[in-house]
Each structure stands twice: as C-alpha cells, then as structure tokens.
Design a protein around this nucleic acid. Structure first.
Length: 497
DNA sequence: AATGCGCGCAACCGCCTGCGG
DNA sequence: TCCGCAGGCGGTTGCGCGCAT
C-alpha cells in the first residue's frame, strides 16, 4: 500500500501546470506527458474560470496521490465528486478505473500464477467473457487484468493452433456438453446428490448471472476454485483433475513468462495435483491420476460402470441398439473397453460393437476445410468428429445417439473420479454449448490416429482453433505418455496410454 | 545501430443498469 | 413513467518496451 501512495511531488513547474489544465487532450500532449512529464506533475490548483477540460492519458504519480488521498478521506464511490473536491482533472469514470485497477489496496501485481491461470481458464469456460465476475473469484486481480491476460493468451494460442483451454477444462466442457442431454431431473444432475461433495457449488450471484447470461438451466455452476483459493483450507477437487505436470504441459508452454512459476505447488489449495475429497476414487500416484492413463494394473481399480451413481442406471432404450450384433472379437482385440471394467458390464457386448462400428465409421477428415468441422462457433450441436454419414450410411443423428450412449458408458468407466460425481455433472452444463466430443478406445493395433493410445479423447478446440495446423504437443503425464495433437480444424486429440 | 514487429498493459469509449427525483 | 446521473462492464485502442532482423 505504501508504495502505491507516492509522496507528494515537488511543486509542478508552471509549464507543467499549464499542461495539466490545457484545453485539448490531444495525442501529442498525451505523448509528451507519457514521455517527459510522467514523474511529477500537479494540478491541484488551477484557474477555476477556465472551462474544465478533463485530462486523458496516463496518470501521473501526483494524480494518483490526490486520488488516494481523496479515497482515504471520503471512501470509494461518488467518483464524479473527486474532480470537484480535489480539482483533479479526471472524470469520475477515470478515477474509478484508476482506483480499482491500480491504486486500491490488496491488488496483486505481477504475473498470474499457474493456479490463477488455471482458474481463469476454468472460469472462462464457465462464464465466458464475464471479466468482472471472474475477477471476483480472483482476489487482488482486476477484470481488466484478466481480460488482457485472456485476450492476449487466447490470441497466441489460436495463432499456434492450440486449444484455448487446458485438457482438463476441455474435458470438463465435454462433460458439460454431455450433461446437457441428460434429463435435468435425473439422478445424474440431481442437486441433492451434490450434498457433501466438495465439488463446487454455484452461488446465488452466479446463478443469477447464469440466468442473465442466457445459459440453459443446466448450465454449470462456476467452479468455486476462487473460494477455495481464498479459503486456503478446504481442498478442492477439479472436475477433471489435471493429470499432467504443469511445467511440461502444453497449457503452460506458451506462457514463458510464467515458466518459473508454472508448477502447481502442492501446497496450493487449488493444485490440480492435490486432489482430495470423497469422490477421489483413486489415490493419485505418480503414474496415474483419475484414470487417465489406463495401464493394465490400473484398470483393476476402475469401478464397475453401471452402479456408478453418476452414470445413468439405464440407457434410453433407443440408444441401446439391441439389434446390433455383439462384436466380441473387437472387444477381445482391444483387450476390452477400458480394460476389464466394461467387460463385465451388461451392455459390454453391444457397447463394444458400437465402439467398433463408430470407430470404423467416424473418421476425422483432415482434408475437410475447418469451417466444416464443427467448431464451437458453428454450433448446431455438431462439431467434434461427427461428420455427415458414416461409412455404412448411418445417418449422423444416429451416430450422435451412439456417441451419447458411449458417453454414458465410457465416461464413468474411463474417468471414474469425475463421472460419478453428480455435482460435477451438475456443475458441468455448458457455457460452450455446442461442443461435441468423443471418447474412444483404440486397439493396440489401431494406429491410424491413436498411436496405440489406450484412451483417446477427441475434443473440439473450443474457440475456433487454428485450423489445419499439424502442430503437436506432447507432455508428460507423470509417467503416462500423453499427447496433445491438434489433428486439424478444431479437433484436438488427447491420447492417454 | 536502425528499424520493424509483436506483445503487454493502461486507459478510453460506448452501452447498460440501477436508483432517485 | 420518465429522465438524469452514477457506476459497472466489456470491447477496443494506443503507447511503450523488448526482441528479432
């Protein structure tokens, strides 16, 4: 605080005074002030007869001092009175902005920490460009700061053809997308089920904001990570805990300025590598967290699919597709969907068949122009890798049903810590409503896209993406190899081996 | 050394909302 | 109900700086 209140400057020179009360806030005067007269300048007393022409441009330390002094004496608010009471040639708006963005106490300066960056990404995924509300979740940060950060960051990542959101947030949105198809009254999204969970809840303001933002009723509550951050005591569970180590993550890569900070401190309350809480099914081991890398040994830890409280107990009959011939060979070839977990599932056979069929039928078309690829801007519920008609002529809408069915089954099996969490599901309705995603299990000899990955997530790049980039980004998954591959045009693929 | 370019950031602008007269 | 004002918010602009050429 002390350094923010600069000592009163030496009496301004007469020409400086004249400058301050100059009538035209021209660009050249602005330039002069920016360069020469930045250090000291005062204008507390000037001729009252002169028409008051409010100053623009960068604030001087003297002006800051005046404003700080005024706020100390009179408190915040009534910003238009500042000019009258202090003679400061700034409009109320400018005073308010200067105070809130630079002068008020407890402002955090400097680069965003990795925790904050992650939080911003999550908040943005939930709220969109609601900078002020995002700022309310980030103590000491201003909406302007967050906005600037996000805009530059987004530009950079889009230019690089990288997804705007980190994988876990994308996954979150994938859940969100899926959640929108669920009956809101179903157990999956029943609010009661979130009781006792430490997965974040929506506060009233956010709920109101959600309504006013035009989101659906199933819109997710924003993650209350900020609350966790502020409280510093209660552990937080990210919806999809980040399984990768931040310093090597593609999420962190473009942020060289934060490279030295980009480690999720395990002491941090929002450290994604510090998952806790009742729904943390698996202990986080160095080689695996949250079912991301499904090694053979890990598969045994997967919970049964169907009884999972988060998964719907019954699939819609229309989605069960009983006529589909079981493709047990495919299941055998893949070693079973998600390990053995689904092999015991009553629908495993048909599921495997669907998987095989879908995997054969639904192909990403790298040659297709990005505008046909279903990025979020397109909307239409398309997107992802569902394009047109399958190889056997299955209409797209049917494929979509299949995908949704797969979501019901695969998500709980693949991400057992996330999917069964009803609050997370309720949390996860979408701020980016038109994303489609798919999860598929690739056989070991199926190398066309998966490179032998155990689990492959194809997620849309959420803000248009670079399109056509073949950029590839690998990161370590604490032992499990993982790949971020912007295949082309709005799809990024996460492969977990 | 000079120049161009990109980035980060501060500040402005316009619109919207809430409130009181 | 209308109007004006104050404040808030999100988008945009423009400057300064650092880096690459």
């Amino acid at each position: 605080m002390e350094e923010m209140i600069k000592p009163a400057p030496a009496p301004a020179s007469s020409e400086e005074e004249k400058e301050v009360v100059a009538t035209a806030a021209t660009g050249e005067r602005r330039h002069e002030e920016a360069t020469a007269g930045r250090e000291e300048q005062e204008e507390e007393e000037e001729e009252e007869e002169a028409p008051v022409v409010l100053k623009k441009g960068p604030w001087t330390t003297a002006e800051d001092a005046v404003l700080v002094q005024h706020v100390r004496q009179h408190g915040e608010g009534n910003w238009n009175a500042v000019q009258r009471m202090t003679g400061l040639l700034r409009c109320g708006k400018s005073c308010r902005l200067r105070w809130t963005n630079h002068l008020r106490p407890n402002l955090k300066k400097g680069s965003f920490s990795p925790d904050e960056e992650l939080l911003i990404a999550q908040l943005h995924a939930q709220l969109g460009n609601k900078w002020a509300r995002m700022a309310s979740h980030l103590p000491g940060r201003t909406d302007n700061e967050i906005k600037n950060y996000w805009n530059t960051r987004t530009k950079r990542r889009q230019r690089a053809g990288l997804p705007v959101y980190p994988p876990d947030v994308q996954l979150h949105l994938a859940f969100a997308k899926r959640c929108r198809y669920d009956d809101f009254s179903s157990p999956l999204s029943s609010p009661q089920q979130s009781a006792g969970s430490n997965v974040l809840s929506m506060d009233a303001a956010d709920a109101a904001g959600a309504a006013s933002s035009g989101y659906t009723s199933a819109r997710p509550p924003p993650l209350d990570l900020a609350g966790q951050l502020a409280m510093g005591s209660r552990p937080v569970q990210l919806l999809a805990a980040t399984p990768f180590s931040a310093p090597s993550s593609p999420w962190g890569k473009p942020f060289a300025r934060n490279a030295q900070f980009f480690q999720f401190p395990h002491s941090s309350p929002v450290s994604p590598t510090t998952p806790t809480g009742p729904v943390q099914v698996h202990p986080v081991t160095p080689e695996l967290s949250l079912g991301y890398g499904l090694h053979a040994g890990d598969r045994a830890r997967l919970p049964p699919v169907s009884p999972s409280p988060g998964a719907r107990a019954e699939l819609p009959s229309s989605q069960l597709r009983p006529s589909m011939a079981p493709t047990t060979a495919a299941a055998a070839a893949t070693g079973g969907l998600v390990g053995g977990a689904l092999q015991d599932h009553p629908n495993a056979a048909s599921l495997e068949a669907m998987l095989q069929e879908l995997h054969d039928a639904i192909k990403i078309e790298p040659s297709a122009p990005p505008e046909n690829r279903g990025t979020e801007e397109e909307g239409g519920g398309g997107g992802g890798n569902l394009r047109g008609v399958s190889g056997d002529g299955k209409p797209e809408v049917e494929l979509k049903d299949d995908i949704e069915t797969l979501f019901d089954l695969i998500i709980p099996a693949t991400f057992p810590a996330a999917a069964p969490e009803p609050a997370a599901a309720a949390t996860a309705a979408s701020a980016a409503p038109n994303h489609s995603s798919s999860v598929s299990q690739h056989s070991s000899d199926d190398q066309d896209h998966s490179n032998g990955a155990d689990v492959v997530l194809d997620l849309p790049i959420l803000t248009g993406g670079g399109g056509g980039s073949s950029e590839q980004d690998d990161w370590s998954l604490d032992g499990a190899a993982c790949q971020w591959d912007n295949i082309s045009g709005g799809i990024c693929r996460h492969e977990f081996r």
